[in-house]
Structure formats: C-alpha cells, structure tokens
Design a protein around this nucleic acid. Structure first.
Lengths: 134, 134
DNA sequence: CTTGATCCCGTAGCGACTACGGGTTGTAGC
DNA sequence: GCTACAACCCGTAGTCGCTACGGGATCAAG
C-alpha cells in the first residue's frame, strides 16, 4: 500500500529542502498533513511534492511564509486572481528595490572607506573613524 | 551625584536605539555594565554613549554582533590594527556584493513575471506559473 | 531475523532584537 | 512632605524560518 508514495526523506530530497523543514511546514500549516503508514510514518502523494516545490521556489524568490500562504490560496485553479498575485509580487518587488538601494549605499560607503585604508599602515583607521562618526 | 550622566532611556534616545536593546547589549557583553544609582537605575557616562553610537553605526552598516565585538577590540587606540579592520570590512563588503547579486536576479525575474501579468486578467497567472516551475 | 537506515516526536537553539507585565524608583508640582 | 506619574527594574517569552539534538520506533534489504 502507498507504493507510489514518498517518504518524508524522499519528498524533502526531491524538492531540495531539509527533512526537518518539511515537518516544520506541516506544523505551521503550510503543508497539509499527509497519510500515515500503519507504523506512523508519513506517506506523501505527488500533490505534496508539487506543493513543496511551490513553497521552496517562493522562498527562493524571497516571499515570507504568510505571503506564501496567500499565494497558495490564490493559486487554486478555481480562483481567478492573477491581478491579486501580481500585486503581491509587485509589493515584494518594491521591498526588494528598497533593500537593494540600502545595500548599494552600504557598498559605496564601505568601498570608499576600505580604499582609504590603503596598505593598512595608517595610525587612524578610516573604517573605525567612520564607525565612530555620527 | 551622577548629575552629568544619562539614564538608559536618554542614552537610548541619544543613540537612536530602543531602550530594551541597550539592556540586551549589556546582557550579551557588547555594552559594559554601567554604574547604578542608589535605587538601582543604570547611570551612563559619556563613553557609554560613544560606544553605543559606534555599535549602532556598525549595525547600520550590516556588521553582525560578533564582528562588532572584534571591531570594538580593534578600535582601542593602543592597538594599531587598521589592516585587520580593513580586512574585516573587505570581507563584509564581499558578502554584501553577493547579496546584491542575489537580489538583482530576483528583481529581474520578478519584474519580468509581473510585467507578463499585464492587466491581471489572464487565466493562467504568470507569477503562479513561475512559482510552480522547477 | 537481524541489521542499519530512516523516521517518529518534542524541545531547544540560532541572531538580533522586541514585547510584556508586575513591581520599584525618580522627579516635578503643589 | 506628599502625591502623581513617568521612567526604570528584571526575567521571560515571542518573533522568523528554520536547524539540530536525542532516544526510541519502524521499515526494507539480505
């Protein structure tokens, strides 16, 4: 029985996530609880693998757990919600843009400061000076 | 007594950090334990304010707590360690560069996918399709 | 039927805070 | 001096998204 189904280990491997992470997703309700063998081991159907891949991909793209919950709800084929999904992605994109801008500032500042150090033989280290400022 | 000194609230405000964060920094040994009033309230000297500003600035630049510990040690005027500090900043810069590259990929992918949504009236949402892929 | 890999569950830890809550102290106005 | 009330005290728990641990049960191959 359950011959075509996956153990948690195989499922995790097939989606490229940690086994413990799958249990975690189940605990927080992101993955549905699967069937169990007589001995109590989890037995996953192909849909579970699909769901897990969806989650992993969303995480890779930087969506948070709550966002993924909403994306899953919106991805049901009965709901025609491309606009909502697009807006969520757009919001996410906006926050990524902001993060990028932040990092760009840091990058520039650090680069300049490191450059000012030259060979590192200075008495007053420019990096320390920068950190001490403000 | 301690008339020129700061309460934890004023210190926090002057450095632009949360009061609880100051207590946290003390607990993990990042801020030295200050003198106390007879009633047990913390009483900070100006050096504490300087230290806290140094920490906040370092955090803003993305250094982790352990890195800040090292930076503080290296910032003692007796140690001539500009080269070490520069190397730490350089390492940090490298990891920022990596993060930027990651974000850039996400940004491009999300931008394209969102653009594909158009007015959001599609039956198959390009964002969902993208998340389902792989 | 034994071995060894895999899985079970609950709990604790990570980093860097933030929040809560019940009690104490400090201070300004009267 | 007394009364408000803000500010502070401390310990603990929660946040996010996992990851690790450990002792025991189960599964699959030989």
């Amino acid at each position: 029985m359950f011959r075509q189904n996956l153990t948690i280990g195989r499922l995790a491997q097939s989606a490229g996530v940690n086994l413990e992470t799958v249990r975690y997703y189940e605990r927080i309700g992101l993955m549905p609880a699967p069937a169990r063998t007589q001995g109590g081991h989890r037995s996953y159907a192909p849909e579970h693998a699909q769901r897990l891949r969806f989650i992993r991909r969303s995480r890779e793209l930087g969506f948070g757990i709550d966002a993924i919950r909403r994306l899953i709800a919106l991805s049901e084929p009965t709901v025609q919600s491309c606009a909502e999904v697009r807006d969520m992605a757009q919001d996410h994109l906006t926050s990524i843009d902001a993060k990028m801008a932040d990092l760009q500032r840091l990058q520039a500042l650090l680069r300049q400061t490191v450059a000012d150090c030259g060979d590192g033989r200075q008495i007053r280290c420019p990096v320390i000076e920068e950190l001490g400022s403000s």
